[in-house]
Simulated assay, not measured.
Amino acid sequence: MNTAAVAAASGYSAQQVRDLEALGVIPAAARSPNGYRQFSAAHVRALRAYRHLAHAVGPVEARRAMREVHRQPPDRAAALVCGLHAGLNHEREQALAARLALEAIRAEATTEAAPVDGDSMTITELSQALGVKTSTLRFWEQVGLVASERVTTRSGTARRYTLTAIREARITAALRAGGYRIPDVQNAITAVRDLNEVSHSVAALDTRLEAIAQRALALLRAGTLLAEIIESARQRDETGGDFA
């Protein structure tokens, strides 16, 4: 196939095909005696794999992965693809943990007045509001679930809890009351912190989860093609054949 034919078969423009070849996304095409590129069905397969992979993990990571799949031995190439699945699954677990945390406090009654940045609580006020002991709050702080600030008082220093800390304490209290273990609560709190841009909304996290599901499907489609590429590489290694 010439450049125009492989472009038509893959859905890319001729220039994109040349660019992706230069980037190592597909192996270098053979050259005819007159210097024109000669592609094969295997190049089309690689281009289609890249399209799905770019949807799943982004174009930068997809380009890196495609180069490594072509370069690495079959066992390492297969492990790389497994790693992509693991990374996407981690994103899903993180979003689910954040959603769990938000569900834990969503049903709580809202205050009459909107909170302001200056709002804060002492450890005694927060313990009374949550119905837990002050020693429990100190333990939560020790294991990284809640972060207080230290303020100077006449008698020394004291803990103050900002809106963020209060919110995290509410999540922790709700999840602990629901029977979740400390490691599970730590995962939820970490997820809320890491996904701060969407952590205010369960609906936003549902949208994120749907997007991850679509990316996972794209990765599965890419995986089928990548498996063929890796298997072809193994056969070439055994027979000493060329990319075809």
Results as ranks from 00 to 15, higher is better:
Cys82Gln: 15
Cys82Leu: 13
Gly83Ala: 08
His85Val: 07
His85Glu: 14
Gly87Leu: 11
Gly87Phe: 00
Asn89Ser: 13
Asn89Tyr: 07
His90Tyr: 07
Glu91Ile: 00
Glu91Lys: 05
Arg92Cys: 03
Arg92Asn: 01
Glu93Gln: 12
Glu93Asp: 13
Gln94Phe: 00
Ala95Lys: 00
Ala95Tyr: 00
Leu96Ser: 04
Leu96Phe: 01
Ala97Leu: 00
Leu100Ser: 03
Leu100Val: 01
Ala101Cys: 03
Ala101Asn: 03
Leu102Trp: 05
Leu102Glu: 13
Glu103Cys: 05
Ala104Tyr: 04
Ala104Met: 02
Ile105Arg: 08
Ile105Cys: 02
Glu108Val: 00
Ala109Pro: 05
Thr111Lys: 05
Glu112Pro: 02
Ala114Ser: 11
Asp117Arg: 14
Asp117Thr: 09
Gly118Val: 09
Asp119Asn: 13
Asp119Thr: 08
Asp119Val: 10
Met121Asn: 05
Met121Arg: 15
Ile123Tyr: 04
Thr124Cys: 00
Thr124Met: 05
Leu126Gly: 05
Leu126His: 08
Ser127Gly: 14
Gln128Leu: 12
Gln128Glu: 15
Ala129Lys: 10
Ala129His: 09
Leu130Glu: 07
Gly131Ile: 06
Gly131Ala: 08
Gly131Trp: 08
Val132Cys: 12
Lys133Glu: 15
Lys133Arg: 15
Thr136Phe: 02
Thr136Glu: 12
Leu137Tyr: 07
Phe139Cys: 02
Phe139Glu: 10
Trp140Gln: 10
Trp140Ile: 06
Trp140His: 10
Trp140Val: 06
Gln142Ser: 13
Val143Ala: 08
Leu145Val: 06
Val146His: 09
Val146Gly: 10
Val146Phe: 10
Ser148Val: 05
Ser148Met: 03
Glu149Thr: 11
Arg150Gln: 13
Arg150Thr: 08
Val151Leu: 07
Val151Asp: 08
Thr152Leu: 06
Thr153Lys: 06
Arg154Thr: 13
Arg154Tyr: 08
Ser155Trp: 12
Gly156Gln: 09
Thr157Gly: 00
Thr157Gln: 15
Ala158Asp: 10
Leu163Ala: 11
Thr164Trp: 04
Ala165Leu: 09
Ile166Lys: 08
Glu168Pro: 01
Glu168Cys: 03
Ala169Lys: 09
Ala169His: 08
Arg170Gly: 03
Thr172Leu: 05
Ala173Glu: 11
Ala174Lys: 07
Arg176Ser: 11
Arg176Pro: 00
Ala177Asn: 14
Ala177Pro: 01
Tyr180Cys: 07
Tyr180Gln: 13
Tyr180Lys: 12
Ile182Leu: 15
Ile182Arg: 08
Ile182Asn: 06
Ile182Gly: 03
Pro183Ser: 11
Asp184Thr: 12
Val185Asp: 11
Gln186Arg: 15
Asn187Ala: 15
Ile189Lys: 09
Ala191Asp: 04
Ala191Trp: 04
Arg193Asp: 09
Arg193Trp: 10
Asp194Met: 07
Asn196His: 14
Val198Glu: 03
His200Ala: 14
His200Arg: 11
His200Trp: 09
Ala203Val: 05
Ala204Ile: 01
Leu205Trp: 01
Leu205Phe: 03
Leu205Thr: 02
Thr207Gln: 06
Thr207Ser: 06
